[in-house]
Amino acid sequence: MKDNLDDVVERPRRYWKEDGLAELVIGTLFLLAALLFYIQTLSAAGSIGRALIDVLIPLLLVGMYLGSKRLVEMIKSRLTYPRTGYVAYRRPERKHSRLAIAVALTATLLITGVVFAVGPQALQWIPLLDGVLLGIIFIFIGQGAVRFSVLAAVSLLSGIALALQQVGGYLGHAAFFGLAGLALIVSGGLTLWSYLYRTRDLKEAANEQ
């Protein structure tokens, strides 16, 4: 009874991921980031283009964080909520938000520290750090879901492969975010297809009311 009750409490928390929309949106934004990183590799150092993209990339990352949830909500209100209902989630406790910020800052400082300590040759290992960090994030948000374990493995393996191939710097970022973005889109797409297939009768029933 205790285990079943815990599972009932946990299910609404997994509902956000049930339709794969968050993965599709984040995957698309990752591909956009990959494109910007790739354009960086083509632009000359000190050029206006590079300076512009240097500004665009952090803005994109901030925009991803702030805008992706709203975009997902907007799509869910048209696709998911009419089929399987609406849920409003509780705001995370302050200690969780502080922990998330602390982890993000630590990761940033760690990467910066490694680059400064080891020198330019450390840049080839950036994809590996990206892979490890993203893998940890996938495991954390996945809450045991198999597909997030697969995404974590893909992230880690991509990071390792790119680091061993000495694909570092902007090109390494571009390749890593490109691979991670593709993996997210495939995962999200399959999940969405499965969700729409499972709930096709529910949508028809809701339309008939």
């Binding site: 009750l5 009932v8 409490v9 946990e10 299910r11 609404p12 928390r13 509902y15 909520y81 399987t84 209902g85 609406y86 849920v87 409003a88 989630y89 509780r90 705001r91 529910l202 809701a206």
Partner: peptide, 22 residues
Amino acid sequence: RLMIVAILFAVESADFLYLQHE
């Protein structure tokens, strides 16, 4: 009712359709 309360405990709110589905 235990199921309903357990579901609502995890969230801020939920609509009737979600509760019915779950």
